[in-house]
Structures are given as structure tokens and as C-alpha cells.
Nucleic acid binder design. Structure first.
Lengths: 182, 182
DNA sequence: ACCTGAACACCGTTCAAGT
DNA sequence: ACCTGAACACCGTTCAAGT
């Protein structure tokens, strides 16, 4: 018999990730413990360590799983203002889908790790379309990423009184700021 | 004798806060444990609970202690662009002084708690000077706070490649965005 | 190869007891 | 009033042992 003692099927990394995402979704990152996760999967806590190096690594893994779910807007022919708004909306949607994990990912982000996969390519493409070039490109990209991250983070925390109008205000401010720079 | 068993002087809330800030400063919020804090103060772990309701409350307390150290720029007669920059710089300085705690405070901020004391008054004053009024005032204030918070957070995390120029880019973008709105 | 139980070194916090 | 020791219910993780 190849079946394990307590479960019908062997433990899977995807299974672990799904359960971990569920726990984090329900009670925040603090609610994720290796022991509770194992209980959720009906498995001995130590079995997890055969699929994952440790708790911190597991959290990193579900962070990139979240980042992979970011639906980057395609390069349709629409003006850069609209594409910038679409990108911000995608980021916004991701944060709303995984509020707790998004906040954790932003707070624990490391300089090297590029958790957002292709987001930088899209952002730079849009900025180039807006006429940003040379050394300004990298700086403006960093700034806009920080701005939008800060906004969606604040929004998911309930710190924005009127999220809808405030989102428009935010995008308008960025668009006018980009258009009106010296 | 009024002296305690292990220490010359009785435990003080200020003493606890100072030690907690030191621990967080050295190893991040995760490095703060009631037991390590007690050891640092040469005291039984349980003694802390006579001065503080619990760990989470203690962290909240040192967060407001940090917020109190925010040096808000005075209302000199300088143009609003300059005052906005000064306010952002003050926020920036606070984040650099307490990087770990600042990130924690932003990630765990609650809607009700106004951790930043007078910052909103200053921000709204500057925005009014910039010609923002009516329902735009609250929205724009929320947006700018989130933007600046996001930027200084990213900066303390080392996510901004060129912090100096990027800060200028960020302020310029906001200033032009405010000036050029419809 | 995959899983497990016991064990180690930690946590935050309660409670009854000390002075 | 302030402090303490023992205890409870948790953690993450190592390690040797099972199949």
C-alpha cells in the first residue's frame, strides 16, 4: 500500500500552498502556524518539512503565488493614461484579493526579490509612452510603484475614507504630475 | 527596604518603552519578546504585566511614542510647495529613525487610531494653501499620506535604487500633480 | 521517499502566592 | 502596590526511527 497512515493521498506542495493561503486569508499571517497548517491538512506537523524548508520560506512561496495571480493589462493601443490606470487597478484588485498577505509581502519585501514578475516591464513601458526617459525612468518607476503600493495598502486597511473617489484622485494626480513635469 | 529583589529601582513605563524600542531597533518587531524584554531589564517576565496590558498593547504604545517624535514643520510663510516638501522630509526622517517600527505601524494601522497626531492638520493646511478645497481636501489628504508613506516605507526597505533623486522626483510629481489638476 | 513521535528551546499569559 | 515562580497552552524545528 502506498497510501499514508492518515490520508488517502500523499501531501502536495500545491495542497500546502492552498491551505496556507486559506489560513492567512482567514486570520492574517499571524494565524498561520506550521502546526495548525498540518492539522488543516490532517498530517503530522513534521511532514510539512519534507516539502518546504521552513515557515518563512513557505510564506515567501505563497507570496510569489499571489504575485503570479497579478493580471497585468495587455498592451492595447489605448493612451498611456488609461494603461497606467489599468495597471493600478490590477494592483488594487490583487491587494483586495489577498489583503493580509499583500501587506505582509510589502512590509517584508527584500531589495533583490522581484515579487511582481512582469509588473516592472509594464510600468516602464507605460512610462516610456508617457515620455519619461533616461535616468528619470527608473526613478519614476520606483516612485510610482511605491505610491500605488502605499495607496492600495492604505485602502485595504480601511484608511481611505472614500476609496472610489480617492482612487480617481490618486490616478489623476499621478497623470497630471507626469504630464506637467519640467 | 523598598528596593526590589533584583534591581535597585522599581520598574518604570519609560524604562520599558526605551528597552522595547531598543530591541525592535536591533532586530525588528519579531525580535521583541516579553521574556527577552524582561531579561533586558533584569526583571521577571511577569513584572511587565503590572505596567502593560500585554505585548500587543506595548507595541502600540511604542508606536505612539514614535509618532510623538515626528517633528512637524512650523507654519512659516514659505510657499506650500516648500512646506509640503518639509512635511514629507519629516516623515522620511521618522521612518529612517525607526525603520522596523515604522513598517510595522503602517502595516498594522487601524482606521480609528490617529497615530500621527498633528500630521493631518499640517497636511490639510498645506493642501488648502495649494488651493485644494471642498470634498477634494479629505481625499487628496488621504492619497498624499498613502503616497508619502508608501515611498518612505519603500525607501527604508532599500527598494528605491536612488533615494535622493527619487525623493525629488516624488515631490515634484505630487507638486505638479496638485498644480495641474482640473 | 515519505512520514512520524518524542524532544528541545522557545513563546504569551494566568494565577496564586509572596513582601 | 509591586513583584515572583510555577504552570498552561502554544510555537518552530531537529533528530532518530519507522514503512
Amino acid at each position: 500500500m502506498a497510501t499514508t497512515a492518515r490520508r488517502g493521498a500523499p501531501l502536495t506542495l500545491d495542497e500546502i500552498h492552498a491551505a496556507a493561503l486559506r489560513l492567512v486569508d482567514e486570520g492574517g499571517v499571524d494565524a498561520l502556524s506550521m502546526r495548525k497548517l498540518a492539522a488543516e491538512l490532517d498530517v503530522n506537523p513534521m511532514s510539512l518539512y519534507h516539502h518546504v524548508p521552513g515557515k518563512e520560506a513557505l510564506i515567501q512561496q505563497i507570496c510569489v503565488a499571489m504575485a503570479d495571480r497579478l493580471e497585468l493589462p495587455p498592451d492595447d493601443g489605448t493612451p498611456w493614461q488609461e494603461q497606467l490606470r489599468a495597471l493600478a487597478l490590477a494592483y488594487h484588485a490583487l491587494a483586495r484579493a489577498y489583503p493580509a498577505l499583500f501587506a505582509y509581502a510589502y512590509a517584508h519585501q527584500q531589495p533583490g526579490t522581484d515579487h511582481e514578475s512582469g509588473i516592472w516591464a509594464v510600468l516602464h513601458r507605460v512610462l516610456r509612452a508617457a515620455g519619461v526617459a533616461g535616468p528619470d525612468l527608473g526613478r519614476t518607476g520606483d516612485v510610482l510603484h511605491a505610491f500605488v503600493s502605499g495607496f492600495v495598502l492604505a485602502e485595504t486597511k480601511g484608511l481611505i475614507a472614500e476609496p472610489g473617489p480617492a482612487f480617481d484622485t490618486a490616478i489623476d494626480l499621478i497623470v497630471h504630475g507626469l504630464a506637467g513635469r519640467s
